[in-house]
């Protein structure tokens, strides 16, 4: 399991994360939400070991997180790929480099679930839409059945129908394979519908961690209520009953 224990991270002179503690079990989904600049992307970078905590520790089953080969779905779909190479090359680059095993029908199943026709993978990133690039990013992350996947805004460029089908594929694979999913998102509708817990970040601190039911019905903090009400006003969430 993932354990983030009293982690603080400095970026230049400022402290981007301040004493963050959370945990995530295999098969579970934690959604991390909060305002722009709250530290969500910094948290992902720290979990992946790209930023070193100034205080605290981050482990997966007691070892450094990198030891479990976590997968990442990046926020900016097109720039997540090498522009000079085909998407197929980028998808299998990590598989080849890591000598990872891929099930025979894995690519076909992911393409079907993500509504990507196989020929699309032979294009370069600039020759597909941002929504298609985003789904190829999800395909790349899931191709080798990792035990832990970090999703940074995985559905932001997808239409409602494709969002639903993509969310279903992720949920089905998670049920079958039991990977832990940490999802950074602004989409509170997705977080409430699919996460086991929602962590709200504000100014580098965790404002509140709760189940979706508690987040919707009776969040403790003022900021959580503001966030929920803004999502309702935008049409991203149904009003709480």
């Amino acid at each position: 399991m993932l354990k983030v224990d009293h982690v603080s991270v400095k970026r230049g002179a400022s402290v981007a994360l301040k004493g963050i503690s959370l945990s995530l079990d295999p098969g579970k989904t934690l959604a991390v939400v909060g305002e722009s600049g709250a530290g969500k992307s910094t948290l992902i970078a720290a979990i992946l070991g790209l930023l070193k905590p100034s205080h605290g520790s981050i482990t997966w089953a007691g070892a450094p997180v990198r030891s479990c080969r976590p997968a990442l779905v990046m926020q900016e779909p097109r720039s997540a790929f090498n522009p000079a190479l085909s998407l197929r090359h980028s998808v299998f680059e990590t598989v080849t480099a890591g000598k990872l095993k891929v099930q025979d029908d894995r690519l076909e199943r992911l393409c079907r679930g993500l509504e990507l026709y196989p020929g699309l993978l032979d294009r370069r990133p600039s020759a597909v839409s941002i929504g298609q690039a985003q789904r190829v990013g999800i395909l790349r992350a899931l191709i080798a059945a990792p035990p832990f996947v970090l999703f940074d805004e995985p559905l932001s460029a997808l239409d409602a129908v494709t969002q639903k089908h993509t969310a279903k594929l992720i949920a089905d694979l998670q049920d079958e394979e039991g990977f832990a999913a940490l999802i950074v998102t602004h989409d509170l509708g997705y977080a409430v519908a699919h996460a086991d817990e929602i962590a709200v970040l504000k100014s580098g601190r965790i404002d509140e961690i709760s189940t979706p039911q508690v987040f919707m019905a009776s969040p403790k903090s003022e900021y959580c209520r503001t966030l929920r009400d803004a999502a309702v006003a935008l049409g991203a969430l149904e009003p709480p009953v």
Binding site: V33, G34, E35, S36, A38, Q75, E153, S156, A157, H186, L188, T226, L227, A230, A231, A233, L234, A236
Partner: peptide
């Protein structure tokens, strides 16, 4: 084109 896709709900509502 997707003006609020990278914004949290509070900022997105203020922007709209």
């Amino acid at each position: 084109d997707e003006p609020t896709s990278a914004l949290d709900p509070v900022i997105a509502a203020a922007t709209m």
